[in-house]
């Protein structure tokens, strides 16, 4: 598939709702990873899963952790480029608008450059972003994927 990619090619995942459950999954995975006991570990209240705590911090309600958006963009890149997207290159994302409960999120990427290097790789430069259902950008960034040539 990658051999057919050229500058301007765009990919996107289907729209997803940033549900309360999706936010909580990211909250709980944080301590689960730290403890690595083979069990899921829950966390104390955060701005991502507790309305009262979020409001106390000046937010109108719970907001998604930005890393959920970044991981959805990574997922899109892995769908397109395979495990090479997780193996060498770069991913940079900036969270320019908060994502509230049940907001629509669409992960997108567009190829901006294609370059063969002397290491037997094709290096793809990409713009990456997440947008809402109206096309408003929520997360913006860039990526580079080093795809091994066959």
């Amino acid at each position: 598939m990658s051999a057919q990619l050229s500058v301007g090619t765009q990919f996107r995942l289907p729209p997803r709702l940033m549900t309360r459950e999706r936010m909580r999954w990211y909250v709980d995975i944080q301590e689960t990873v730290q403890q690595d006991t083979g069990r899921i570990v829950t966390q104390p209240p955060t701005i991502h899963d507790d309305d009262a705590y979020a409001k106390k911090q000046g937010l109108p309600g719970i907001i998604s952790d930005g890393m959920v958006s970044t991981n959805w963009i990574l997922s899109l890149l892995v769908d397109v480029f395979g495990v090479d997207a997780a193996s060498k290159g770069r991913l940079s994302t900036k969270y320019i608008a908060p994502i509230y409960e049940d907001g629509v999120v669409i992960a997108c990427a567009q190829v901006t450059s294609v370059l063969d290097n002397e290491s037997g790789e094709t290096v793809y430069g990409l713009d990456v972003w997440c947008e809402d259902g109206a096309g408003k950008k929520l997360t913006v960034g860039t990526a580079a994927v080093h795809k091994r040539r066959a």
Partner: peptide, 21 residues
């Protein structure tokens, strides 16, 4: 799983971690 990265390389034939970790 928590981030819906359901690809085989992260769920079955697990040799590498996602860089976002």
């Amino acid at each position: 799983h928590a981030n819906e990265l359901h690809q085989d390389c992260f769920q079955n034939d697990v040799k590498v971690a996602p860089p976002t970790l």
